[in-house]
Computed example of a mutant assay.
Amino acid sequence: MDSNFLYYSLELVAGSGSVLTIEQRAALQTSLVILKKNYKLKRVLFWGKILGLKKDYFIAQGRGEDEMKDRNNLYSFNCMDWFLLPPATDSMIEKVSKATKGRFVGDPSYVYEQMVHSGDEAVEEASVTVATKVSEEKRLAVTIHHIDEEVTVVPRGAFIKNPHGLVQINRSFGGLSDSEARKLDNFMHLSEPKNAKRKSIHEMGEYSPAIDFLDVLSDDIPKGSWSLQFECASKVCVLRSLLWLGLTFYHMPMTPQHGYIYIGDGMKNLNLPFML
């Protein structure tokens, strides 16, 4: 959620338990402004919080000229001092998927290890053990990358792709209507599209390449991985992900106000297909 509307946005998602203390809000309000200036960012979002056994990671995300490609993730333990996370590379993602499991510890220097046995385990001399090591800082970067790829949400029309291919905020976006906000077809992932055929093209009866370049939530697999409700006297549309429990998105129909926050343990709900 945009740091300029942090207090306002947090109130709208409080029904999901996504709350911060008064001290944390005050610290974020100050530090995110300084962060934006120091890193020369176009926009700064408070991304959320990943819960650890010892400490929690507060996450901020800086956006550049391209809202999808120009992203920098930072973490903090006190909402004041921020540390830049490395970008999630393919090799890093592979190592993290092999070596990490369980809850986050809350220590970026903590090292996860995976022991791999090669050779004939029946013969002790032929068995060789190889360790795959990865730090929790890298695991944090990869987890944020996965959540951004799979469950970030924006209303249809909130972002446009300009003639140069840059994805930017649509300044003329006035919000979805009340009836539009009740359909998953009108909400999209702000990530690289994976579906060649998108429902918004043929179900809505209108297609604009400038805004219909993203995947719609109704195409997500498994079906039923989103909960859509109206809260605050039916004035606010709230979407919750059942795949990444803790991801909450809000949008006020007929206004450009929208945003999302993740507060959870950073673990994907792999049992979802069996729960639906």
Results as ranks from 00 to 15, higher is better:
Ile144Asn: 09
Ala27Gly: 03
Phe159Trp: 05
Leu217Trp: 03
Thr21Gly: 14
Pro193Lys: 13
Gly266Phe: 11
Arg71Thr: 06
Cys237Glu: 03
Arg171Lys: 08
Val167His: 11
Ile50Asp: 02
Lys268Trp: 11
Glu203Val: 10
Leu51His: 09
Asp220Ala: 15
Arg71Met: 09
Val167Gln: 08
Arg63Met: 05
Leu12Glu: 05
Pro193His: 06
Leu276Asn: 10
Asp148Ser: 07
Ser16Thr: 15
Ser91Tyr: 04
Val238Trp: 03
Val216Glu: 15
Pro209Lys: 08
Val44Asp: 01
Lys69Thr: 11
Ala126Tyr: 08
Ala122Asn: 14
Glu11Leu: 12
Lys42Trp: 01
Ile144Trp: 10
Val238Leu: 11
Gly106His: 07
Ser179Met: 07
Asn170Thr: 05
Asp220Leu: 06
His258Val: 01
Gln24His: 12
Met1Thr: 09
Lys98Asp: 00
Gln114Met: 04
Glu180Trp: 00
Asp185His: 02
Gln114Thr: 03
Ser76Tyr: 08
Glu192Ala: 14
Leu35Cys: 06
Phe274Pro: 00
Pro256Phe: 06
Leu28Glu: 07
Ala88His: 08
Met254Glu: 13
Ser127Phe: 04
Arg139Ala: 02
His145Gly: 01
His202Arg: 07
Asp56Lys: 05
Asn170Phe: 02
Lys69Tyr: 08
Lys40Asn: 15
Arg171Pro: 00
Val134Ser: 01
Gly17Asp: 01
Val44Ile: 15
Ala196Ile: 15
Arg103Gly: 03
Arg171Val: 06
Asp56Tyr: 11
Pro253Asn: 09
Leu228Trp: 02
Glu125Trp: 08
Asn78Ile: 13
Lys69Cys: 05
Lys54Asp: 07
Gly205Gln: 09
Leu35Val: 06
Leu270Met: 07
Ser208Trp: 10
Glu65His: 08
Phe230His: 08
Lys138Asp: 05
Ile263Gly: 02
Val130Met: 09
Lys54Trp: 09
Ile93Cys: 03
Leu51Met: 10
Glu124Pro: 02
Met252His: 02
Phe58Glu: 08
Arg25Pro: 00
Ile22Glu: 14
Leu176Ala: 03
His258Leu: 01
Arg71Tyr: 02
Gln24Asn: 12
